[in-house]
Design a binder for these strands. Sequence first.
DNA 1: TGTACATCAGTGAACGCGCGTTCACTGATGTAC
DNA 2: TGTACATCAGTGAACGCGCGTTCACTGATGTAC
Lengths: 212, 212
Amino acid sequence: VSSLVKAKRTSYHHGNLRQALLDAGLDLLAERGVDGFTLREVARRAGVSHAAPYHHFPDRGALVGAIVAESFELLGSALGKASSGAGDDPFDRIGAMGIAYVEFALDHPQRYRLMFRSELSRSSDSEVATDADAAGGTAFGTLMSAVQDAADRGVLRDGTDAGGAAVAAWASVHGLASLILEGSIGIRADQRDRARHLAEHVVTLVVDGLRR
Amino acid sequence: VSSLVKAKRTSYHHGNLRQALLDAGLDLLAERGVDGFTLREVARRAGVSHAAPYHHFPDRGALVGAIVAESFELLGSALGKASSGAGDDPFDRIGAMGIAYVEFALDHPQRYRLMFRSELSRSSDSEVATDADAAGGTAFGTLMSAVQDAADRGVLRDGTDAGGAAVAAWASVHGLASLILEGSIGIRADQRDRARHLAEHVVTLVVDGLRR
DNA sequence: TGTACATCAGTGAACGCGCGTTCACTGATGTAC
DNA sequence: TGTACATCAGTGAACGCGCGTTCACTGATGTAC
């Protein structure tokens, strides 16, 4: 990808600048983090003048928003894959999604950080925010439906409402991912085993809490 | 506080600029958020030239770090209060701390956001980071000791290790607080009841998961 | 096939901005004798 | 009590920076006839 992005164009027109900007933005994000993310640097990496992006995105926030939307779609598909690979039991599915959620955050830390810094994707173009919201909603929906399934089968702990339970489950893995990425727990990026172990711990806790 | 901060000085020397900067920083944070937080604006609000803060903090990150440390102390004492007010049962104490944690985040959203944006408090003066870390450690310690207490009494679910359980409990409420503050769950700042209800849901889930 | 023209997608200069930090300075305060 | 002096805690000008955005422009491409 990067080699393509950095390749010199031969023609005046880029051909697929919109996608190139998204790719370059992602590279930049991975390299410099959220705070190093500027429109001008993205343009530089895409090999284009700093004004060119304005033909594809109304403003900086819209570019960020597009990356966020793309990221939520990625997360959603990771969760979907985890869920469908986990068999029939809803708790197994919930657990698999929880692990997949944390792994997604560890695999794409900058993407993840960007996804939950909503102020960065605020744009004058309101459509962008909607795209991201929709993708986020889809991802959450996958979790929600597994919880609902458990409720329908009557295996949810008494007095647990499905919506609240889904939020609680999401919150738990989201919190763990955030704490790990922020370095609040003493876990470095290379200690995947410890992270995974903790994720399993959290997921077990949640599932034990939900199970009848 | 603001009126004091904005009051004109009569003397050349400020008297207590260090604290005034911390207070002004907090006001600014509440008003403009993390991204509007600049050294120059803090100085402006403290009624002092923009170079004056350098006599009290080596750089911008150090000021932020001091506010973060102060905030973790505040959180720690809120947790301590919740814990000791909840009686003898360790699960009651854990639950009370969970609720208090989320309430702290809702009461001090900007402070909370700042606390978990560690890159902002990175300073050339390493002592600052240490202060914040220590205060954070103390806060976590309060939770940890309640979990350890449960373990000692043998009321923890079989196979649960206390350290992992404490991290998991923390992650759960941290995740909920983050999701609410980011607006990822459809809860507005004024809907305290719904937030509180969700917090109780998460806490119940965690405690049910921990209990033997 | 050629031509006129509209539209698309680039360029590069410029604007205005506010930032963090440094510097030489100066007024105020405290201390030693 | 006075005086010399060191130190502390301010000031304001300046530096260099990179940013987001706008603008008039131009080269390339597509389309109608």
